[in-house]
Design a protein around this nucleic acid. Structure first.
Length: 802
DNA sequence: AATACCTTTGTTTTT
DNA sequence: CAAAGGTATT
């Protein structure tokens, strides 16, 4: 079934209007003003329009500028009209930014780039036009397909797993969702899943995958992975369709190419293989999504994939000071198999990367809080007085955020967490969306399941099963099945009455949703009120109920921007990020992953401890590859900083309710020392035991114990010793042994210490929790109070570096 | 059917 | 330690 070419008429009228002025400008032959200020490499990237181009753009080298100017150039040169340029990004944010910047470059002459968007949003557009090509002889996808969210996906998989009599405790639905996602990322359809990977789920992994795909088809739904995969399958099976799109997209641009997975790679290669006008921008050193299926190999292999490709390197960095750049470059140099770039900058000024260790994660948060207050108050002249918006804290794992949130809350420092639970992923929003979905398409069984009993309508498992049985038997949707059950009287009591009311309301809402004279915003409000959903939260006494009501209001408000509910639902399925229009002065806290693509004058990088960063799990699961990805993450973190980067680590960290001690990150050792300044933690005093103990009003003996503890773990690692030596070259605050003041009384021992116990003899410490230790004695493991053991006799003599 | 208690289990995340 | 999920209770 071939679509006529007229399907491509979206912007033709507009293009016709724009064309004369474009060619006029091209004919003048004068250098275009938008090219001004580009460096030679950027200019080459902009002007090399034909054939494959790989643009290796290091951090802060003006990548987006090159990309957007290239688009402007294509348009200005009359090479292509906006509708014939395909420009793909990973995130909506990146797409939005590019659109804005292209628009700015072009002045008001260009209205829009219809094919500038994320892989997924572009795939939806393509897939809607060929939906019927997906499926088998019996069922096929319809153009009106819905896009599942993760909740729906899990719910569906749970049902399938249960139907196969598989214990979903051993094999959770979540995990299967992950597997399927992984397969889709690798462009593997159920029949192509390698033998060895079906072991899970009693050997039924691939079978469940096939059943899942089948169910999706029946539900006229797709998941995120399908958007790409279906497109690839269509392109491969229908050369005529592929040819249309190849002809359509004369020029292809790809952002963040290092993050593409196999499916995306195939998608791009298919579209580009005819004319080969593809320009991929990326940085192999910033590939940090390997765990999600991204293939660094794609970028490393580019020249082999596209013979004759021109490789252009953007190496002049406009973002960071020389020390930051050098520190980051030195670190990333430890990775093997890089394409290699040498970042340089014209800047000459700037502070070194600062490094500081703390006793524990609370001290770390406290110190960073004080630093931020100092920057904000202008007490730090090197960087001047700073807005809180200039400051970011980048963590490896989101649980690290808590220490900062707690601390900032108590000192009243405004902060914002970026990339936390997203607006459209909140429970109340998803519930409301399910109501809207069902009103728009009454056959959306997944939406039905989500909300039949939300708010509680007295419908339990038994009632739901009755409805499902009825629906299956009669070939009806669940909503229709529910109506049938109500009519037949198969259900009685309160549940039946509520269900009747529910189906009646839903019928009315559906009619109203189709009625263009009914205002969709008012309809949405009415749905939430009449269903009792709003009331449910109003009656909820839990502390977050008011917030949820606010969110619902915000949701309704967001509806105003759309013409109808359908349009809104489509938008939300793809654009899962909420309006982030906060302009208050706030410190930003986010994960390193969330920080990619952002920049801040002042950056704090806490938690550089082995096991946390690099993460133990990464290394266990992916070995050297994992470690290298962690290192790239460190590189990304450092290169976010414009003026000042501060790396921090803590000797003890509360994890899963237990105090764990740890060593400074191996990445710290890898930093080139001439670009690092080692700071002395405030808890370490040079004034001698007595003085420090007096200052802090603590008993002498306890201070002495802290001192020992501090040396035993953190400050006794090779990395710390080296750092200490470097610090010693500079005027040191003191030559006296520094001691830690605010130590945990319990933690005078570190993992690995030899200890002596009256009854059990000598053993080594395996774990530390508050004031108890887990110790391996000859007799076995024992958990005992720290007070009952003492350091095995001579331990102190060989670990006194100071 | 809904609540109260107990067990388990803990990276990174877009679309 | 806290959140989430499952089980036991009413």
């Amino acid at each position: 079934m071939l679509q006529p070419m007229s399907q491509f008429d979206d912007h033709d009228a507009f293009e016709a209007a724009a064309r004369p002025s474009l060619s006029q400008r091209a004919m003048t032959g004068r250098a275009a003003p938008y090219l001004d200020g580009l460096n030679p490499a950027q200019r080459l990237a902009v002007e090399t329009l034909d054939g494959p181009v790989l643009l290796l753009a290091g951090a802060g080298t003006g990548k987006t500028r090159a990309l957007t100017t290239r688009i402007a150039h294509l348009l200005m040169q009359g090479r292509a009209t906006p509708g014939r340029i395909l420009a793909v990004t990973f995130t909506n944010k990146a797409a939005r930014e590019m659109k804005e910047r292209v628009a700015r470059l072009m002045g008001e002459t260009v209205e829009g780039m219809p094919w500038l968007g994320t892989f997924h949003s572009i795939s939806v557009k393509i897939l809607r036009r060929h939906a019927e090509m997906v499926g088998d002889g019996q069922v096929h996808l319809k153009s009106s397909f819905t896009i599942l969210d993760t909740d729906d996906q899990i719910r569906l998989l749970k049902q399938l797993i249960a139907a196969e009599n598989i214990d979903d405790k051993r094999w959770p639905a979540r995990m299967l969702a992950g597997l399927i996602d992984d397969w889709k990322n690798r462009a593997l359809t159920p029949s192509r899943v390698p033998e060895g990977e079906s072991h899970a789920y009693d050997g039924k992994g691939a079978k469940l995958y096939a059943q899942y795909q089948r169910r999706l088809l029946e539900l006229n739904a797709v998941d995120f992975g399908d958007l790409l995969l279906h497109c690839v399958m269509i392109f491969q099976a229908h050369p005529d369709v592929l040819a249309q799109w190849q002809d359509r997209f004369r020029y292809i641009l790809v952002d963040e190419y290092q993050d593409t997975n196999v499916a995306q790679y195939l998608w791009l290669r298919l579209l580009a293989q005819a004319h080969r006008n593809i320009c991929c921008v990326g940085d192999d050193d910033q590939s940090i999504y390997g765990w999600r299926g991204a293939e660094v190999g794609n970028i490393l292999r580019f020249e082999a994939d596209f013979p004759g490709a021109q490789v252009i390197r953007l190496e002049q960095n406009y973002r960071s000071t020389p020390h930051i750049l050098a520190a980051a470059s030195g670190l990333i140099a430890a990775n093997k198999g890089r394409l290699g770039k040498t970042l340089w900058t014209e800047h000459t000024e700037g502070e070194k990367v600062r490094l500081i260790g703390h006793w524990d994660s609370e001290a770390e948060a406290r110190w960073i809080g004080e630093e931020i207050e100092a920057f904000h108050g202008g007490h730090r002249h090197s960087v001047g007085r700073r807005s809180l918006n200039d400051i970011a804290i980048l963590v490896r794992a989101s649980h690290q955020m808590r220490a900062f949130e707690d601390r900032f809350m108590t000192i009243g420092l405004p902060y914002r967490v970026i990339g936390g639970p997203r607006f459209y992923e909140r429970q109340e929003i998803r519930d409301a969306m399910a109501y809207f979905r069902l009103a728009v398409s009454p056959t959306d069984d997944l939406a039905f399941e989500r909300i039949v009993n939300t708010p509680k309508r007295g419908l339990g498992d038994k009632a739901i099963q009755t409805i499902q049985r009825e629906a299956r038997a009669e070939g009806l949707s669940l909503l229709e099945g529910a109506a049938a059950v109500v009519a037949s009287g198969a259900l009685t009591g309160k549940g039946a009455a509520n269900l009747r009311q529910f189906t009646q309301f839903m019928g009315r809402w559906h009619a109203d949703a189709l009625d263009s004279t009914v205002n969709h915003v008012e309809l949405a409000e009415r749905i939430l009120d009449e269903s009792g959903y709003t009331a449910m939260w109003q009656n909820d006494r839990s502390p977050d109920a008011p917030g949820r009501l606010d969110n619902l209001k915000e949701l309704v408000k967001a509806l105003e921007e759309f013409d109808n509910l359908q349009g809104f639902l489509e938008h939300v399925a793809l654009v899962m990020d909420a309006s982030e229009s906060e302009q208050a002065e706030e410190v930003s806290i986010m994960t390193l992953h969330a920080a990619k693509g952002l920049e801040y004058p002042i950056v704090f990088l806490p938690g550089w401890e082995d096991g946390l960063f690099p993460s133990q799990r990464s290394m266990d699961e992916s070995g050297l590859k994992g470690l290298e990805e962690e290192r790239r993450l460190a590189y990304v973190g450092l290169t976010r900083a414009e003026k000042l980067a501060t790396i921090t680590f803590a000797g003890n960290r509360r994890m899963y309710g237990q105090w764990q001690s740890s060593l400074p990150s191996r990445f710290i050792d890898e930093l080139p020392e001439e670009h690092v300044e080692v700071l002395t933690p405030p808890g370490l005093y040079g004034g001698g035991f007595g003085a420090a103990a007096q200052v802090m009003g603590q008993p002498f003996a306890q201070s002495a114990m802290h001192d020992r503890a501090s040396r035993a773990d953190v400050y006794n690692s090779p990395g710390w010793k080296r750092m200490q030596e470097r610090a010693a070259v500079r005027p040191a605050p003191s030559h006296r042994p520094p001691i830690v003041i605010d130590a945990e009384p319990a933690a005078r021992f570190a993992v690995g210490d030899r200890v002596f116990h009256q009854k059990f003899g000598t053993g080594s410490v395996m774990g530390i929790a508050e004031d108890t230790l887990t110790v391996e004695f000859p007799a076995g493991f024992k958990t005992i109070k720290a007070a009952y053991v003492q350091p095995a006799s001579d331990a102190a003599s060989d670990d006194a570096p100071f």
